[in-house]
Design a protein around this nucleic acid. Structure first.
Lengths: 129, 129
DNA sequence: CTTGCGCTTCCAGTGACTGGAAGCCTTATA
DNA sequence: TATAAGGCTTCCAGTCACTGGAAGCGCAAG
């Protein structure tokens, strides 16, 4: 199977699939014409990667998860640990964004947003106490 | 004033200040020995940048905001527009993270996390229906 | 035989820094 | 006065996960 069809079936751009090969996440065979020749198992892996990435796992985490997926002697605790750590990172990020959002929202509401130059958003950024 | 003191007073790493000069956000003078010579107005600008970045504004937005700050004929509506757009982007990001968080949290709770290999997290990533 | 698409590789750019090397400048101490 | 420590300089490379684009080969249709 050529990369175009794999891209469609896995939902990943061909560019991304080539990149994943480059960094060793998939190892498709090669046809005699030099084209990548993907097996069903490659599509399966790529879909796995797509879903993991969609959950925000880093490429490094994806590598780990893929390794665990293929390791029949894994312990589910290992998988859970990776996921929990990622969950905590997501929570941190959400908290940070919410804090930004709150401040920014206050400033936006305080700004009348008309043709006059005075603006509480700029005053705040300028360090008004 | 040398970069070290400016770093302390603005709260930005010296590396970042040099970078901001490189991309034209600040233009400190130079002493005869080649050292950057910052004025109070430079510190003020850098602190402004620090606060804007802390609210998640992109460097490009920061450039715009600084421009508006220094433009006495600005209209507060311009500032508000930039801030509102950023606020919307933050909301999008929060929504996306929350959605990830929800899925991931369910999976983490469903995984017993012991020494056995079967794991709903991996099953989900593998595309179990 | 040409057109056009799909595939290949390779290089560069993204955003916003950050780390590190090599070397000059200044100040304090022996 | 020599030297050592620390601050400053520039420049290059790396981060993360792609993405865009150029140049060129392979292949099927008209």
């Amino acid at each position: 199977m050529n990369i175009g069809e794999v891209a469609q079936r896995s939902g990943l751009p061909a560019k991304t699939i080539r990149y994943y090969e480059e960094i060793g996440l998939v190892r498709p065979l090669r046809s005699s014409n030099g084209y990548r020749a993907f097996r069903e198992s490659d599509i399966h892996k790529l879909s796995f990667l797509g879903r993991a990435r969609a959950l925000g796992f880093s490429i490094d985490d994806c590598r780990t998860l893929l390794g665990l997926y293929e390791d029949e002697s894994r312990e589910s605790a290992q998988v859970k640990a990776v996921a929990q750590e990622h969950l905590a990172a997501i929570d941190d990020k959400i908290a940070q964004l919410k804090s930004m959002r709150e401040t920014l929202s206050e400033l936006v509401h305080a700004c009348h947003g008309d043709d006059r130059p005075d603006c509480p958003i700029l005053s705040d950024l300028a360090g008004a106490d």
